[in-house]
């Protein structure tokens, strides 16, 4: 029964996002990509593929992260503010089901969004090269990693919004996204420091989300392969990290008095 309720909440979240014209960002994306592909083709030699992949995947990532954060922070707080949550939680719906349902609704929205954008990237690749290359397959891996990042960002923005104001949640989530992209450097810093500070730095460095190893955009743009073990570990990491953030959100939300 509970999967049914989680599913209903997820679907409703998805529907709400779609009707809120979230997917309109696809138009901006399409314009950006096709404009760039055509323009670069005219002013530069031999780097169309590079530009299409770099620009396309970077835009997918940025658009997606912005959507994840700005919808994610409102998922819970908006329902509390507008008191829609009252009519949901007065039914046989447990609070964890609500949080988990919201998470899947948002990630679902992002997966659909990314899917359409990915089609755009591949069309642009086809337009510039007139055929698909074997190494284009690695672009799919880069896209997959980007989706994994969305999972973590969604979970984090849900986590922050379970106890903080929307504005602060957005700031926290965005800061963690930036820090997470530098996470390997941070762990490097931590390795070099000693004593209590070193312990503290290590703790922080390993607790912030690690996006650095999920960013293989330039690598695949150059046609370099991505190791199978990295795919496996990144998957495990992203799923567990999201689970951790969601569990934290549930723990806080379960205790919360809805004003």
């Amino acid at each position: 029964m509970s999967t049914g309720r989680v599913g209903s909440i997820a679907f409703n979240t998805f529907r709400e996002a779609v009707r809120d014209r979230v997917l309109y960002n696809l138009i901006a994306f399409a314009l950006l990509l096709s404009g760039a592909a055509i323009l670069v083709g005219e002013i530069s030699i031999d780097i169309e593929r590079l530009v299409v992949i770099n620009l396309g995947l970077t835009a997918i990532s940025i658009f997606g992260v912005l959507i994840a954060i700005f919808i994610g922070i409102g998922l819970v707080s908006k329902e509390i503010d507008k008191r829609t949550l009252y009519t949901v939680l007065s039914r046989p719906v447990q609070r964890w089901e609500f949080v988990v349902g919201k998470f899947f609704g948002l990630t679902g929205t992002l997966v659909v969004n990314t899917f359409f954008m990915a089609i755009g990237v591949f069309l642009a690749l086809l337009y510039t090269a007139h055929r698909f290359d074997k190494m284009d397959g690695w672009v799919l891996v880069a896209l997959y990693f980007i989706v994994l990042q969305f999972f973590i960002v969604c979970a984090l923005s849900l986590f922050f919004s379970s106890f903080s104001t929307p504005l602060m949640s957005a700031v926290f989530s965005f800061a963690l996204f930036i820090i997470g992209n530098l996470a390997d450097d941070l762990r490097g810093f931590a390795r070099m420091s000693h004593g209590l500070g070193g312990w503290l730095a290590t703790g922080v460095a390993y607790l912030v989300p690690n996006f650095a190893s999920m960013n293989v955009v330039s690598q695949v743009a150059h046609g370099d392969p991505v190791g199978g073990r990295l795919i496996l570990y990144n998957t495990v990491y992203a799923l567990l990290y999201s689970a951790m953030a969601i569990a934290g959100a549930v723990l806080i939300f379960q205790r919360r008095n809805l004003k």
Binding site: N12, R15, E16, R19, D20, K82, R83, Y86, T87
Partner: peptide, 8 residues
């Protein structure tokens, strides 16, 4: 003063 999902 109930309020529901705008887009439904």
């Amino acid at each position: 003063q109930p309020y529901f999902y705008d887009h439904l």
